[in-house]
Amino acid sequence: MDTIQRTTTADVGGPAQALTNKLSMRQRFWRTLRKNYLLYLILLPGLLHLVIFKWAPLGGLVIAFQNFSPFQGVFGSQWVGFEQFTKFLHDPAIPHLLANTLLLAFFTLLFSFPAPIIFALFLNEVRNRYVRKSVQTFSFLPYFVSSAVVVSILYTLVSPQGGLVNEALGFFGIKPIFFMAEPGWFRPLYVLINVWQTFGYGTIIYIAAMTTIDPALYEAAEIDGAGRWKKMWNITLPSISNMMIVMFILNIGQILSVDLDKVLLMYGPSVYETADVIQTYVYRQAFAPHGFPNYSYGAAVGLIQAVLALVMVVGANRAAKKFSDSRLF
C-alpha cells in the first residue's frame, strides 16, 4: 500500500513539478493565490490587525523626532531631529526616575521570584489531596482579580479612618499611619501585593514541573535513608532548576517594565518620591500633563525605554537558550 501510494505521488509530482518550473514567477504567484485564496481570505483580518494595531504604532514612533501637535498630525508636525533625546539627557527628573524603576523592579524580583518556589516545594510535600487542592485553588484566586480591585482592597484595609490594619496598630497603641500617602511605604506595599497576586500563578508552573519527577528517584533515596529535607533539597529542587532559571531570566528581561496599572492605581503626588517611575512619567507627559500634553517627549522617553527593554529581553532569551531548551521565542 505504502509503495503504491509513493509511486503515484511521484508520478503525479514529476510532471507537475516540471510544469511549475516552466511557469514564470508571476504565473506561479497567481496559481498559488488562486489555489489558496481561501487561506488568504481567512488570514486577511489578522493581517489587517497586525498592520493597524501592531505595526502602525511603530510607525507612530516617528513623533519622537518631531514636535508633534495633534492638530497638525504626524505628517504636518515640525521635525526636530534628536532634540527630544537631548532633552531627555538633560532632564533633571530622569536619574531619579531610573533609580525608582530599578529599585522597584529589584525588590519585586527579590520577593516575587522565590515565593512560588518555596510555596510549591512545601505544597508538594502535602500528602492529603484535599488540603493540597484547596490550598492551590485559594492561592490562585488573587491572580484572577484586577489590580483595580486589589489596590481598592488595600486602600480599605490600610485606611487611616477605620481600616483594619490601623485598628490593629491602635490596639498596640500605635497612632494611625496613612500608608498610601507615605513614600516610605510605597515599595513594601507594592511588593507585598505583587507577591500576593502572583505567587499562586507561579506555583502552578513549578507544581507542573514537579509532577514529571520520576517517583523511583524518591524511592531509591528512601532506601538510602534520605529524609524529607534531603529529598526536597537533592531531588525536588534540582528537578525544577531548569524552570527556575528560565523564570528568573524572563523576570530579568522584564526588569525595566513595572506593572503600570498597579503603580498608577497606587501612586499620587505625595509618594512620587519613591513611586514615580519612567512609565508613569511617560504617561503623565501625554495624559495628565501640567500644561499642554507633550506627546513627542513622552514618545522619545518611551522609545529609549523600549530599546533598553529589547536589549534585556533578547539577552535574556539568549541566556535562557543556553541554560535549557526552553526559550521565550
Binding site: 497586525l50 508633534f68 511617560v282 506627546y295
Partner: peptide, 17 residues
C-alpha cells in the same frame, strides 16, 4: 507578530494611531 511583541511602540504612539 513576534517583532511587534518584543519591541512595543508604547502607550503614546498607540494613542496617536
Amino acid at each position: 507578530f513576534l517583532a511587534s511583541w518584543i519591541f512595543e511602540a508604547g502607550i503614546i504612539p498607540n494613542y496617536i494611531i
